[in-house]
Design a protein around this nucleic acid. Sequence first.
DNA 1: TTGAAAGCGATACCAG
DNA 2: CTGGTATCGCTTTCAA
Lengths: 328, 328
Amino acid sequence: MVTIKDVAKHAGVSVATVSRVLNNNGYVGTETRKNVMAAIEELNYSPNEVARSLYKRGSRLIGLLLPDITNPFFPQLARGVEDEAGRQGFRLLLGNSDEDIEKEMDYIQTFVQNNVVGMITATNHVDYDMYQSLDLPLVLLDRTSSSYPAVYADGREGGRLAAETLIKKGAQRVTLVKGPAHVKPAVDRYRGAMEVLGEADVDFSVMSTTSYAFEEALNWAEELFQKFPETDGIIASNDIVGIAIIHEALKRGKNIPEELQIIGYDDIPQSRLSYPPLTTIRQPAYEMGRKAAELLIQRIGQPQQEHRSIQMPVELIERHTTRKDDQE
Amino acid sequence: MVTIKDVAKHAGVSVATVSRVLNNNGYVGTETRKNVMAAIEELNYSPNEVARSLYKRGSRLIGLLLPDITNPFFPQLARGVEDEAGRQGFRLLLGNSDEDIEKEMDYIQTFVQNNVVGMITATNHVDYDMYQSLDLPLVLLDRTSSSYPAVYADGREGGRLAAETLIKKGAQRVTLVKGPAHVKPAVDRYRGAMEVLGEADVDFSVMSTTSYAFEEALNWAEELFQKFPETDGIIASNDIVGIAIIHEALKRGKNIPEELQIIGYDDIPQSRLSYPPLTTIRQPAYEMGRKAAELLIQRIGQPQQEHRSIQMPVELIERHTTRKDDQE
DNA sequence: TTGAAAGCGATACCAG
DNA sequence: CTGGTATCGCTTTCAA
């Protein structure tokens, strides 16, 4: 490994000087700088971030804590974070929590031990001690809290929009699939949808699901049709469940969207691939990730600043699991 | 921040002693150990990994370089790596290369600068200088090379299996969708399939695709039916394309699997969600990730050891885009 | 404009 | 069994 010492020796200067040209601060003569640069080049030197981090008590690393990268909504968030962070010279330490507090604490601890300069987390546990006592710039992603800056989509509005759409398009017996109670954005959507359903002249039912796990999606879909065979409009808890519902509906010979309309949530990339392609409420996941990184890095610069959250707009993506217009 | 010094002071011993109990080596009196433990507990101390890493010239970090986590095959790989690494006390630095050499080099550099102890990469560029000159345990994931240990699935066999299946099930005019030429596993599959097709009594065509990008999938599907409207059996380059093909076929009123059989590749989680659910060749992605981590960590322990690669078996998952049996 | 040296938080060697 | 101290690679005073 080539160190700053080697460079210094090679250039015939002190390490202090090398450090100065490396960081572009302090005075350094033009000639000297040129020599040092040459030495760096020749030796193919790049500074040890660990040593740097130790002295500065801060690395160029950001901790990213996600529930489960295997759930298709999160890779997009992650990519957004990574791309923006990367552009600004930061790298990512990644952790999947599975919404499990133990794992979450574990990751947070190692993030801290590794001197991350900030952290982006999609957690439902912000109110726990570990977060309170965390002395790090933090931004919440896809979650909210009054205590921290956050980047999230307007879940309530999303829920409303989904319900309004279905009603406007003439659904009479709506089924609302409720996501897991411990997942905040899921309950926001649920509430939004409920508001609208409560005010409308339609019958509706609610079906609870307790997980977002992939393997379960088809089971939920099956259960749904067993319990509510007469439904003609379904608000799915997310796109995965929505796609599973399409599957099950087709299997049962239902016509989509004539007999049964379905609306999803998230607009994951594969939603346009289903047949018929899924109408859904879009969350701008990639953009959310980007913004979160932006916000965090900004806070890393000025930690004292009052914090601000960003609510991203949600959008109806009309595809073919809903009817073109009201066809009562 | 509480340091080893604080603990030492609190426990009335030297830092050396604290270090000993921390690392469980050297002699330490029972009483002393107890005191130190107590101090650690009380101060809620946890050692600074950065300092440790600096001295030891090695962290507890592993670099994971993937083409694009947004492509549904990779999250599973990543989860496998993370879970196994985590179990053994390692954390992940994540990078997406987009198969771009610049980005790849950038990530590798920062991985090194951060003292990662090893690296897992799904790259097509192993033969570049940067890898040759890399003095780090390295394992390839989903790629192969004679120079490094690797964990990969048997692409050739997978391709063969796909083609054999389609033929056995009575396809007469097969279309083989060829993945991007610069992606190694894609060409392995292609070759495998070609071997079988060449030996069989069926007509077949090859359609080239130049990217695995999500947004393109539907375009490839459309192009396929324009170019080869008469095909009755399609070997997709991966499940995403397979699902897009189902979409397009249904849109064109084709009966699956009676008129048209389709077989995918990868067995990503959403493949069972399509309707009809996609028959596919399964790569055990999660398990591959796990094995890669296992292999790497093993090598970190004994770097000199002769390296060994692991080829994972590939498996036909029969769902409903192929016929039950030969129905010529 | 430059260099010497202290220090970041840990580990491990050497004495005692 | 325990403590003092050099060391890891870098940054940043302080003096010259």
